[in-house]
């Protein structure tokens, strides 16, 4: 096949993924599509991280541990992002959530 080591294939895939996802992240309107683009950027970055460092016989455990930590951090951010998307949706669609406003009556420190 093509004369290309797995490490640089991982690097190239990660770079292309990050590029595609970053451009879409900056241009898309829909909040959930943005969070999906964020996850893809995360995946691309981790591919780059392991692709850059994984050039020893048994794959170097340190970048793998870093990638694992990266995945957990990405899910934490995505979770908070989705909570905020729901909060934004509650704020901007008061009509649909009639009782949703019930708990919003207490005095709000306005922006």
């Amino acid at each position: 096949m093509i004369e290309l080591s797995v490490a640089s294939l991982t690097l190239w895939t990660g770079a292309l993924l990050t590029g595609l996802a970053l451009v879409r992240l900056l241009t898309v309107e829909d909040l959930i599509a943005r969070l999906i683009a964020l996850n893809l950027t995360g995946g691309g970055t981790l591919l780059i991280l392991v692709g850059l460092a994984a050039r020893t016989e048994p794959v170097d455990p340190v970048p793998q541990a870093l990638a694992l930590t990266g995945i957990v951090i990405t899910v934490a951010f995505t979770g908070v992002g989705l909570i905020l998307v729901r909060a934004v949706d509650d704020d901007e669609r008061p009509s649909r959530s009639a009782d949703g406003r019930a708990h919003g009556h207490d005095e709000e420190a306005n922006a």
Partner: peptide, 10 residues
Amino acid sequence: GGRGAPRAAL
């Protein structure tokens, strides 16, 4: 924060 805060936070 208040009304616009979740969108700014996102």
